[in-house]
Design a protein around this nucleic acid. Structure first.
Lengths: 124, 124
DNA sequence: AATTATAGATTACAAGCGTAGTCTTAAGTT
DNA sequence: AACTTAAGACTACGCTTGTAATCTATAATT
């Protein structure tokens, strides 16, 4: 699997919002949350290309970037990894930890119920 | 919050199994899973002490190590962090991703139901 | 008491990461 | 056509991390 650093992920995440996109557009999107220099983001784009996480096409002297991987796929793999490391691969202890420390809202509970519901419907 | 690298976490995790413990005991515990040189583990122990994740008492020429943080606390914070980064702080999308990719077993579902159940009892 | 072994302290070193600055070249402007 | 931007390429640099090897001092052994 492609391994991304935090900063690399954040750049890719800005691309996932809407793509294809140019470097300037990505820089623009990131400017709200991060205080990153334009050069920093370009370095990260280069590293992402090198890692195979995104490609580009030339358009004049700009590049038009596109992700090579999907967000859902990436986050699923990271989630598996995370849960394996910290909870021996079981998901309930993670949720249980949140519950115990009062981190769950009624909305979270409703959403979780729906996930369970859908899962059960799918089993039939 | 104390930030631990993967390798550091693994060492601390071996201590959490049972503590206080000496370096040799920790090395012994890790020998099953990891091919780490004894020196490597000692380096990591030193870094953990420096980061404030564990302390020790002297006993002759050995150190007896003890964690300064609890596993549940650490994993909770890491979980929050993780869910914030990848799922905007909401837990259901993570579980939903697992469900969609057939990663959930009936046992997981039962455990999740129990967590929800307990949560609801607690609300009353 | 002298010697040896070993625990921890210190040092090492390459790769990855965050964070840019400088260089080069082609596109845009006059 | 000449000049100026600005996009991407290349270089930089200190910090962390993984992964030990060497140094030092003290406990154990002879």
């Amino acid at each position: 699997m492609i391994e991304l650093s935090k900063a690399e992920f954040d750049v890719l995440d800005a691309l996932w919002i809407n793509y294809p996109a140019t470097a300037s557009q990505i820089i623009e999107r990131l400017s709200d949350d991060k205080q990153w220099h334009e050069k920093t983001i370009k370095t990260l784009l280069g590293r992402l290309v090198k890692k195979g996480a995104l490609t580009f096409e030339k358009d004049g002297r700009q590049y038009i970037y596109m992700p090579c991987i999907e967000r859902a796929d990436y986050t699923l793999k990271e989630s598996q990894n995370f849960i394996e490391r910290f909870f021996s691969g079981r998901i309930a202890p993670l949720v249980s930890g949140f519950a115990k420390s009062e981190q769950l809202s009624q909305q979270d509970i409703n959403e979780l119920k729906k996930v369970i519901d859908d899962w059960e419907k799918n089993q039939k």
